[in-house]
Simulated scan of single mutants.
Amino acid sequence: MAITERSNAQQARGQPDQAAEQRPPEGEPVADRPAGHGPAERPPGPRGLGDRLGDPAVRQWIQRGAVALVVLVAVSVVLNVKLGLAAAVLVVVGDLVRRSRTASSVEAWQKASAVERKTERQLKSLEKNGYRVLHARAVPRDDEGVSDGRIDHLVIGPSGVYAIDSEAWDKRLPVRTLSHRKLFHGPFNKKDRLDETRWEADLAGKIISEQVGFEVPVQGSVAIYGPSIPWKVMRVRDVDVYAGNRARGYLRRRPRVLTVTDVERIFQAAQESLPPKYPD
């Protein structure tokens, strides 16, 4: 099975030797860089505490709890414990409301199914080139298989494996990067959204790897519909970001790294281990 670099910059076998075999700076254009696949010495083991702490949703609750604890202690010392508890609860509720408004103020008008269908039509045209696609797949987050994560489009093909999320954003707000490490939609920092995409892609790769017995890296990406995107493909926080209408080209211009047998084997493993998010 051919080996090529993934998002963590593994160098492709048979590709020209580069000056440095390391991950490119975040935010660097990567239109021609493939996500890679290759056999691992051993399949990944069960997820540990570090993996769980890497979950963006878990990190948010840890941060929220830490702030609430500080407020509880401070108000309890100055006033009393009851007021401290009340203030801590208000901090948690206020943060939940703030994040909800931030996420929905720009994107409440979004029709996710519409943009997903646009991406689906692009991906369907790649079937004749040996690509297999699974839509709306759940990503289990714990040992009981509970999931609130979803990959809109899991693509397995000659050029690798990709987790693509289709996003509809307000076209009135510009999209920009800052220091090649942050992505903004107008005034809104999309860090959490990128971290969520990367987390789901990495977790999907671990789950599939356990099924097939060798490492299957999954490259996370976000296809954005609505605002103008001033680049072809930009890697920000290990996630590829591009205009929605470039989804097909994003995949087609990458070199072949998987055989037909590899594609089918990974597809079957993904189909069995990543259930439909909305089963019939």
Rank of each mutant, 00 (worst) to 15 (best):
D165Y: 03
D165Q: 03
T177V: 12
G186Y: 11
G157H: 08
G186I: 07
K190E: 10
H180S: 13
G186V: 12
T177Q: 15
I156G: 00
V161K: 00
G186E: 12
K191C: 02
E167A: 09
A168Y: 09
Y162H: 06
R181E: 11
S179P: 00
L173P: 01
R172C: 01
T177N: 13
I164P: 01
Y162F: 14
V155D: 01
L178V: 13
F184L: 12
Y162P: 03
L173W: 04
D165G: 00
L178W: 06
V155C: 04
A163P: 07
R172Q: 15
K190L: 14
R176D: 09
R193M: 12
R181W: 14
V161D: 02
L178F: 09
T177H: 12
S166P: 08
L178H: 09
A163K: 09
L194S: 01
H180F: 11
D170H: 05
G157I: 02
E167N: 09
G157A: 03
D165K: 08
P174T: 11
K182I: 01
Y162M: 01
H185E: 04
K191R: 13
R176Q: 13
S166G: 01
P187R: 14
R181G: 11
S179F: 08
V175I: 15
S166K: 04
L194G: 00
P187V: 05
G160Q: 05
I164W: 02
H180M: 07
V155T: 10
F188Q: 14
S179A: 12
L194V: 08
S179V: 04
F188V: 15
Y162Q: 02
D170V: 01
R176L: 11
P158A: 10
G157D: 08
V155I: 09
N189I: 01
P174N: 07
A168N: 03
V155N: 03
K171T: 10
R176W: 03
D170F: 01
R181Q: 14
E167K: 14
W169R: 08
K190T: 04
V175M: 14
F188T: 10
S159W: 04
A168Q: 13
A163S: 12
R193I: 00
F188Y: 13
V175F: 04
G160D: 04
S179M: 15
V161L: 02
G160S: 02
I156V: 11
G186S: 06
N189K: 09
L173G: 00
L154C: 03
F184R: 11
D170W: 05
I164G: 06
H185M: 05
F184Q: 02
L154Q: 06
S159K: 08
S166C: 06
K190D: 09
I164F: 06
F188H: 12
A168M: 08
L154H: 05
S159M: 10
K190Y: 13
K190F: 15
S166L: 08
S179C: 02
F184E: 06
V161Y: 00
F188M: 15
R176M: 08
L194Y: 04
G186P: 10
R181M: 04
P187W: 03
E167M: 03
L178D: 12
S179Q: 07
P187Q: 07
D192N: 15
D170A: 14
K191I: 05
P187E: 10
R181A: 15
A163Y: 09
H180T: 05
K182A: 12
S166Q: 02
F188R: 11
S166W: 04
A163C: 07
V161R: 02
K191M: 07
L173R: 09
R193C: 06
A163W: 00
K182N: 09
